[in-house]
Design a protein around this nucleic acid. Sequence first.
DNA 1: GCCTGTGAAGCTATTCACAGCT
DNA 2: AGCTGTGAATAGCTTCACAGGC
Lengths: 231, 231
Amino acid sequence: MKVITVDALEWPDDAEPMPSAPEKTLERLSLYRRLLVTIVSDGRRHVHSHDLASLSGFTAAQVRRDLMVVGYTGNPARGYSAEGLVEAIGTFLDGPEPEAAALVGVGNLGRAILAYFLGRRPGARLVAAFDIDPAKVGRVIQGCRCYSIEEVERRVHDHGIRVGLIAVPANAAAGVADRLARAGVRGLLNFAPVPLRAPAGVYLEQMDMTTWLEKVACFARNEAIGKDGNQ
Amino acid sequence: MKVITVDALEWPDDAEPMPSAPEKTLERLSLYRRLLVTIVSDGRRHVHSHDLASLSGFTAAQVRRDLMVVGYTGNPARGYSAEGLVEAIGTFLDGPEPEAAALVGVGNLGRAILAYFLGRRPGARLVAAFDIDPAKVGRVIQGCRCYSIEEVERRVHDHGIRVGLIAVPANAAAGVADRLARAGVRGLLNFAPVPLRAPAGVYLEQMDMTTWLEKVACFARNEAIGKDGNQ
DNA sequence: GCCTGTGAAGCTATTCACAGCT
DNA sequence: AGCTGTGAATAGCTTCACAGGC
């Protein structure tokens, strides 16, 4: 539905209590937060939009726009409180508490993913991993307990998992996506090299490395310009 | 620079012999190609835009627009020749021959990346891997020979490598990006969990898993709608 | 003076809709 | 009847530019 008056401009009608924003904005917010965390741990108390801009590679205007959607308001003299912003972005992105997530497929890629998130504490915690290989079941791999895929429904329910990462071979991916969706997962990150059709009501993000590689190769070939790479 | 007449609309002025297109289009083309390859190997000779649409999850109009930029023209009765399209997209994306690419960092993630591309033949071939760990140097890992990072300049030059994949720890990433750029690489795919500033003239793609996870988590929390996930 | 917050303008991307072909 | 190719319309995103505050 269209928005009519200037002041109702904020969210499209259906009066959700909690926020939502353009995908791109969400992505940038996620990055700002991480930059801010390091700023805070460096002992700085305040940041200006152009600080975040130069750290992130976006423009200052863009940064301010993005911060508008989280509703955190700075101060012309001092800028934004770094800590305050981290918290504001946190409640915006994560809500009251970070989501629980599960990884399916503990092969090469799966282990790399676990290692990647080990020690980081993003807006989601990897609380369980699943695999069919009995040799992996029961072990703790990169700090994450591995269960049999057969337990997926029960554990998704018990842990309140709403996010699933798929890192299984191509031919198994669609089945896993379905099974996760049926178990109650609402968001999927697919690392398998096949395009998945998102089950109804679940948000699907495709991690398509082949596409990215080909895109970069294409730009590399044609006098690369774009994104940050100026000129 | 602006484009003036209707018929000059094709490419912005500076008369490059070879193509260029919006990033998003490139991404979709890459996917179409892979879908087409499986269509061809299933023995089908022709496809319609809506076939590609339903396989890829985009709209038929979108597919046709994208194919416009590669300049391949179909036929109202039969649609597009599947083989012809694969080839047309191939020459558009890859040019005369696929780019040579190098991976830096053969840890968990690096190995997973090698495994991922092993056997696939996308628009770039992984022809060399580099690491500082002497234990890895000289070995062949997932079908790819591993060299000392010290050889990077020489090998990049010798193999004509123009694409680099960075899979080193966060603190080493910026240095590696610089070194690759200085050695002549024109496109970078960064898997390290830090935002890199692209060296002048090189195209940089950030593989930011944390961002993606947080985005998916955010949508999962908020009655997920978006992308494909209908309703 | 330099910063934030934000309407308004400018771009880019997607979708519509239809002429032309078979 | 159903498809492609494509101008025109729409929607979405980013940048500009400036009012208002310290």
